[in-house]
Simulated assay, not measured.
Amino acid sequence: MTPCTQALPPLFALGYHQSRWNYNDEEDVAAVERGFEDHAVPCDVLWLDIEHADGKRYFTWDPSKFPQPRAMLERLAAKKRKV
Rank of each mutant, 00 (worst) to 15 (best):
1 M>E: 12
1 M>I: 11
2 T>I: 14
3 P>H: 03
3 P>A: 14
4 C>I: 15
6 Q>H: 12
6 Q>S: 09
7 A>S: 10
8 L>Y: 07
8 L>K: 05
9 P>E: 14
10 P>Q: 13
11 L>D: 12
12 F>C: 09
12 F>W: 15
13 A>S: 11
14 L>F: 07
16 Y>E: 06
16 Y>C: 05
16 Y>I: 07
17 H>E: 04
18 Q>G: 05
18 Q>V: 06
18 Q>S: 09
19 S>R: 02
20 R>V: 04
20 R>P: 00
22 N>T: 06
23 Y>M: 12
24 N>V: 10
27 E>W: 10
27 E>I: 11
28 D>Q: 07
29 V>W: 08
29 V>C: 03
29 V>R: 05
30 A>I: 15
31 A>V: 13
31 A>F: 13
32 V>M: 08
33 E>S: 15
33 E>F: 15
35 G>L: 13
35 G>M: 12
36 F>Q: 06
37 E>G: 11
37 E>F: 15
37 E>W: 14
37 E>T: 14
40 A>E: 12
41 V>E: 02
41 V>T: 07
41 V>W: 08
43 C>L: 02
44 D>K: 04
44 D>Y: 11
45 V>R: 02
46 L>N: 01
46 L>H: 09
47 W>E: 06
47 W>Q: 07
47 W>C: 04
47 W>F: 12
48 L>P: 01
48 L>W: 01
48 L>I: 02
49 D>Q: 01
49 D>K: 01
50 I>N: 01
51 E>V: 08
53 A>S: 07
53 A>N: 02
55 G>K: 04
55 G>Y: 08
55 G>I: 04
55 G>S: 01
56 K>G: 08
57 R>F: 12
60 T>D: 02
60 T>N: 01
60 T>S: 03
60 T>Y: 06
62 D>V: 08
63 P>R: 14
63 P>Y: 10
63 P>H: 12
63 P>V: 14
64 S>R: 15
64 S>P: 00
65 K>E: 06
65 K>S: 11
65 K>R: 12
65 K>D: 04
65 K>Y: 05
66 F>H: 04
66 F>Y: 15
67 P>T: 07
67 P>R: 09
68 Q>C: 07
68 Q>R: 10
68 Q>M: 06
69 P>R: 03
71 A>P: 00
71 A>C: 02
72 M>R: 04
72 M>Y: 09
72 M>N: 00
75 R>Q: 02
75 R>G: 03
75 R>T: 05
76 L>V: 01
77 A>N: 04
77 A>D: 06
77 A>C: 03
78 A>V: 07
79 K>I: 05
79 K>L: 03
80 K>H: 10
83 V>P: 00
83 V>F: 09
